[in-house]
């Protein structure tokens, strides 16, 4: 029993020491990328959205370089993935809507 406790405490401390720098890196990037826009930045949000619509209306989006278009596509995909993550939180599961009585996870031979 003492060996089991010692084993798990050792594993736990190893996990903490190995993930702490990774968490620090993740926090460093999340702090700038995911900072919610403050109230003073809302006009900038509006301007940015109008610029998007204007570039679509004037056809200026066709003058983007392929690299810029690819980066914009990645950003759009990432925003869609945030929506999917929010949906997973709202429905309380990852794989599907686990409504009791409606879902059967047994193997069907």
């Amino acid at each position: 029993m003492a060996k089991v406790v010692a084993f798990f405490t050792r594993v736990g401390t190893n996990v903490v020491t190995s993930t702490r720098p990774k968490l620090a890196t993740a926090w460093k990037y999340s702090k700038v990328e995911l900072r919610p826009p403050s109230f003073s930045e809302i006009p900038e949000v509006q301007h940015g959205f109008q610029k998007l619509i204007a570039s679509y209306r004037t056809g200026a989006y066709k003058q983007l370089t392929v690299r810029e278009a690819w980066l914009n596509t990645l950003i759009g995909a990432e925003i869609f993935f945030w929506f999917v993550a929010g949906e997973c939180i709202g429905k309380g599961g990852v794989i599907g809507y686990n409504i009791p009585g409606a879902v059967n996870w047994d193997m069907h031979f």
């Binding site: 900072r35 826009p37 930045e41 809302i42 940015g48």
Partner: peptide, 29 residues
Amino acid sequence: AAKQNISPLIRFARWSALLTGVAYGAWRY
């Protein structure tokens, strides 16, 4: 290095997508 001036439109879109997703998931459930 972490880019310091992420466009507020992008940040607003991320948060609104997340919250809209939560609401949509709960409603659909």
